[in-house]
């Protein structure tokens, strides 16, 4: 992570057209991918929980949704910071932006259900149902929003050979930040799962004490 920060802020040259703000993109893109990946993990773990009822699957679903939501929030914060100087506006109803904000809302509602419901067996099952339903909504969302509006930069597939990530150092930085953020994501999820396991243990012990 430190290495990634060093690369992003010190080593990498600024992009020709966009200048310094472009550096934010090294985080923004990976954060977005991690966040979406996290939501897919939540859905997968939810299916596993509904099928087998394993507590670990449920904890994974919750942890991944929580970290995913934090990452999505960061995407939504870093995005406008970049967009303001480059596009001239903080926000635009571009398909990807719209998608991200709706996804954010779906998973905020997922975590809300868990908070308001408590740690009861039934709520865990309800949350799993919502985890699955949420991910099924994504393809429909993509189609709907694409049809609705159709200026997001596709940096990697840019047609202008001079633009985008031409410098090998840029490529390296991009890769290193990717790995660093993936590790950070996994570490946070693991930490969150441990915490949930401890929480369950405390609850079990308290119940024993009361009995």
């Amino acid at each position: 992570m430190t290495a990634a920060l060093w690369l992003v802020f010190v080593v990498v040259p600024s992009e020709r057209v966009q200048g310094v703000v472009q550096r934010i993109f090294y985080f923004h893109v990976h954060l977005a991918w991690m966040a979406f990946g996290g939501f897919v993990v939540t859905a997968g773990a939810s299916v596993a929980y509904l099928a087998r009822g394993s507590r670990v699957a449920d904890r994974l679903a919750e942890a991944s949704a929580e970290v995913g939501l934090v990452f999505t929030s960061l995407v939504l914060i870093t995005g406008p910071l970049w967009a303001r100087p480059i596009w001239g506006v903080w926000w635009t109803w571009d398909p990807r932006l719209t998608m991200t904000v709706v996804l954010w809302a779906i998973y905020a509602s997922y975590l809300m259900l868990r908070r308001l419901g408590g740690r009861d067996e039934v709520i865990l099952r309800y949350a799993a149902v919502l985890g699955v339903v949420g991910v099924l909504d994504i393809p429909l969302l993509i189609v709907a929003i694409r049809l609705w509006r159709g200026i997001h930069p596709a940096v990697m597939l840019s047609e202008d050979p001079d633009a985008g990530l031409t410098d090998p150092i840029m490529m390296w930085t991009f890769a290193v930040t990717g790995v660093a953020l993936a590790l950070l994501f996994a570490w946070l999820v693991a930490l969150r799962m441990q915490f949930a396991a401890l929480d369950d243990e405390v609850e079990a012990l308290t119940a024993e004490d009361l009995a």
């Binding site: 709706v102 779906i106 949420g134 429909l140 609705w148």
Partner: peptide, 11 residues
């Protein structure tokens, strides 16, 4: 719960 899920339908 329902508003975000209904976004594609509403559009």
């Amino acid at each position: 719960l329902t508003f975000p899920l209904l976004v594609p339908l509403l559009i």
